[in-house]
Design a protein around this nucleic acid. Structure first.
Lengths: 339, 339
DNA sequence: CGCGAGCATGCTCAAATGTGCAGTCCAGTG
DNA sequence: CACTGGACTGCACATTTGAGCATGCTCGCG
């Protein structure tokens, strides 16, 4: 028998086979290269040797694998998302930096609030230390700032003076504990301290001006102005606000602020979603550093934590008075989603 | 007021903070480096510049990220698994190579069987061509080999002769079509062909010997022995076997084989799970190249596809008569799981 | 207070990798 | 059949990365 007979009857499947590509040899090679290179950590040279191709070809195969995403490089660390949020915040708002912390949920809403404040404050204290601020540092008060103070480690800064940025004295049952905050900032650093002996908000603009001009308050205010660094937290508007608890704001003021679109306060100054002063009449009765002056500082660290703090965080960013933001993941996400 | 006052009363949370590590700055840095390096494709130098650290440190951070698997490199191509199976088969059985094809499931068991055979046969034809066999090529017969033949492309080899490896003539209603296979192998390559004019299995060892010594069969058998390359498929034992359909095996033989632990056949020779001849008495009645001689060849390509072919594939590997295995994913997995 | 172990840092040098370029092959075309 | 454009290959060279090593720093211990 000889070759060359007429083509014999063959199954129809021969034609079909063109449709289902059986995986090209080139792709096979690419995957083998990827396995050897990424899994076994061989060099491209070694891969080439095993596969019988030049190292250049291996390089090109790996390149293709990456471009066609046959190989995926993923950052799987649980904290990666936080770092991403930090970078996005920094970019989007032109910040000098951002710290976003992860807050494990406890199940209880109240516990979450406490935990968030605690973790964020801790991070703020650590970050603050890493920034090595010098000269005078201005600080605000509030529950968050109290936590920040509690987390400061001795010797965290070489700053020479700690200055209270806004009024805080109170006769109410719920004191502001602003002096504790300032004292701890001073005690942990060896810096001198300067308190602001005045309420946060007084009854009339006239009294405000009189107090601010009196040396007892005026000198601190001048120091607050001169400080190149400021650390502050932000408050939300609502019946649970420290300003209400401390007796500065009554129901009337609250209602007016709500109507004016206030979302919270920075150094006792209530601002709207867009970052403007919500109620100028109230602002003129507020004692402490104005926001324009806060904005002018070299380094400002804004600390904000807890559910519902998104709007005031965003407002603060819009005011432009935050150079470094320290917050929790939920707030960071909210801000980026609503910016 | 002065600094240095006794440490004020502070919330208990300060102590708690030691427990919940707020994500160390080093880790943060590592993740930022990973993002910049892997996502943005900066060089380590550029990453270092942005992060304010030396390129050495960046390298070490990335190293750590990889070691702590904060970064995962994954090969996601759907065919990656196949390549992995190929490598594993090659390693585990010391093969010269393996081709594993992916068979999309159709839902119907029968269609799957056909599709698997078709795809595997196609892959075998392509791979065979890439191996560029020369001289004489021995071939077996069967449904799978028929498909392989159908997929051969003209000019696929420069071989000079195609030789049938084992007997196949049949008077039954279901012919073996062995001549079609050999003819197509020849027609697509321009090689001469040599058929084996004898049944696969005859009634007595005496007749087998007589036939093998007669020039009509003997010359082909000698050529089969001399060929340096062989291509063959494997059959399963069971009522649907081609040997039954072609009338070589009766119910008695089938039962005896089953009892002897046969799992299938290679060139008409039935073997056990472990790779031994299942029924020597039957083997002495089988016409064609013995397995020892198949094993001695330079290049042998075994093609096996379809559900339930795992045991015979494994047996063939254990016999050591397969240098290159071409099969489907299911069979490859089965073999590796049961080896 | 001095000492040394352990560790992180940055350096030099070599290895590994990417890039631009020139040569080659091949399919399609006039 | 010659030609041409495009894809692919391997090479020389520049860049990037890794490895080993000396230095300096911290921290605990005597």
């Amino acid at each position: 028998m000889l070759a060359g007979a007429a083509r014999p009857r063959m199954p129809a499947s021969a034609a079909r086979s063109r449709l289902v590509e059986p995986l090209s040899g080139e792709t096979r090679l690419m995957l083998r290269a990827a396995q050897l290179y990424y899994r076994l950590n061989l060099t491209q040279d070694q891969v080439g040797e095993r596969l019988g191709v030049s190292r250049f070809k291996v390089g090109r195969l790996l390149d293709r694998a990456l471009r066609e995403s046959a190989v995926r490089i993923e950052i799987v660390h649980p904290a990666a998302r936080l770092v991403e949020l930090e970078d996005e915040l920094t970019d989007r708002f032109g910040l000098g930096g951002a710290v976003v912390v992860d807050v494990a949920s406890t199940g209880s809403e109240q516990d979450d609030e406490l935990l968030a404040r605690e973790r964020v404050a801790g991070a703020a204290a650590v970050h603050l230390a890493s920034l090595q601020p010098t000269g005078a540092i201005g600080v605000s008060w509030g529950r968050t700032m109290l936590e920040v103070a509690a987390h400061l480690r001795p010797g965290w800064t070489a700053a020479t003076e700690i200055v209270q940025l806004n009024g805080a004295t109170s006769q109410s049952a719920r004191p502001t504990r602003a002096h504790e905050i300032v004292e701890r900032f001073g005690a942990t650093s060896g810096a001198a301290i300067r308190l602001m002996a005045a309420p946060a908000i007084v009854g009339t603009p006239g009294l405000r001006d009189a107090l601010e001009q009196d040396p007892s308050v005026g000198e601190t205010l001048a120091a607050a102005r001169a400080a190149q660094t400021a650390v502050f937290s932000m408050g939300v508007l609502g019946p649970e606000s420290v300003h209400v608890a401390s007796g500065y704001l009554g129901a009337t003021d609250l209602a007016a602020l709500g109507e004016a679109g206030a979302v919270g306060d920075i150094l006792g100054r209530f601002v709207t979603r867009a970052g403007g002063i919500a109620l100028p009449s109230l602002d003129r009765r507020t004692i402490g550093l104005p926001l324009e002056e806060l904005r002018a500082k070299t380094l400002t660290v804004g600390v904000v934590a807890g559910a519902g703090r998104g709007p005031i965080a965003l407002a603060a960013l819009r005011v432009g008075c935050v150079r470094v933001l320290v917050t929790d993941e939920a707030t960071a996400s909210w801000v980026l989603d609503h910016a």
